[in-house]
Nucleic acid binder design. Structure first.
Lengths: 213, 213
DNA sequence: GTGAAGCGGAGAGCTTTTCTCCGCCTACGG
DNA sequence: CCGTAGGCGGAGAAAAGCTCTCCGCTTCAC
């Protein structure tokens, strides 16, 4: 692949992630093209249709996510610290855009399934160790952590997005959510209601056929 | 106002809130009409343009928010419990939709400013009392709490929204975020970085002219 | 029962989005 | 350093989607 082609691919993928985050998966491809600073033909030449683009983006983000999980495990001695670091890293990647995998919209091929399984496995290892260390609440599952990072990393609506152009606020709020908002003087928190939400729960929910009218 | 007209208004406002949450303020009015189950003429007859609709919706939500703050103060003895209850109530209202107020898009009239001031005041009282009781971290401001409830109450992207059709998951995650994810065996959390974010910060950020290209 | 107000649906006109053709430019092997 | 294959951007035709109104029927209030 020629160097300029690879450069264009990178720019398109990055722009696509941001635009999809802000406007949803139905956002006009034209917006992506403009944000990427390339001509429309450049996008349409590489990707036959919207789905091809979403698939490429998804694979890209999944593998980055897997790398983040491994890196967290490798570089943090403490299991809970590793989970924390992973959540921060996932949010930094703007994970929210990765959810297309989980979406009925995408016909999930073998390659994507494998990537998803690897990522999920790496994350489960992290969580299990943290549970065993006794510092992560038992009622918190991988799905809870992923949802937390999706929710906190999505751009804020409208003008509020200007509050956090560089991600400082994102990490502040992640810290707060992870630490809890109460001081230590507060009584021990009651167990959160419900069962732990797993990665598999997310997949199951998203795999069901779309029932939109 | 005739009873059927009031019914239509309610259906349109509820649908508008949901559609704006999912698709942003530029969402086609046609979608709102369809979700509300009314004819297009019904919307256009009542609201001359998009702004009129946004204004009516904003006023509606702001006053409900103010009522929630007062109710929390009145019905909860403990100051921290009142804050907690308010955050849950705000998220339940899908506060995220209220941000149009804060948006440059809306010419904010006197009535809206007063409503905003009253709401902000009621919330500040709640927070101040909670700070004084020593159970709310001093580095947490009203803006942090509002942002938390905005972020957690926005609909999840794509198929993930099916995870939480009834709001159970929303309140679970709010509880987790409020409690923190660590057990009491963990060392006392480090202070979160940054200054407390206030309601005024949100207003200031949103009031600046829009610089979208 | 009756008049006034409200309602839904069909569709004309306009805007936005998709996607292609084509002439110019850039990377890379010799 | 040059030739050429592959890549690039822009203009614009065709398609899709959105806005908004007209009008005949229904519902409400008295």
């Amino acid at each position: 692949m020629r160097a300029d082609a690879e450069r264009s691919r990178r720019r398109i993928l990055d722009a696509a992630r941001d635009v999809f985050l802000e406007r949803g998966l139905d956002a006009p491809l034209d917006l992506i093209v403009r944000r990427a600073g390339v001509g429309p033909a450049t996008l349409y030449r590489r990707y036959a249709d919207r789905e091809a683009l979403v698939r490429d983006l998804t694979g890209d983000l999944l593998s980055r996510l897997e790398a983040a999980a491994h890196q967290a495990a490798r570089e943090e001695g403490d299991a809970y610290a590793a989970v924390r670091r992973f959540v921060h890293a996932a949010a930094g990647l703007r994970m929210g855009a990765v959810i297309p995998v989980l979406l009925e919209r995408l016909v999930v091929d073998q390659e994507l399934i494998e990537s998803r399984t690897r990522t999920s496995g790496a994350l489960d290892d992290l969580i299990r160790a943290a549970h065993e260390s006794g510092r992560l609440r038992p009622e918190v599952g991988a799905g809870d952590l992923i949802l937390l990072s999706i929710r906190l990393s999505r751009p804020l609506p409208g003008g509020l997005s200007r509050l956090d152009t560089d991600g400082t606020l994102l990490h502040r709020h992640l810290d707060l959510a992870l630490d809890g908002l109460t001081t230590q003087a507060a009584p021990a928190p009651a167990p959160a209601p419900g069962e732990p939400l797993t990665f598999a729960d997310l997949v199951a929910a998203a795999d069901r056929p779309n029932t939109t009218d």
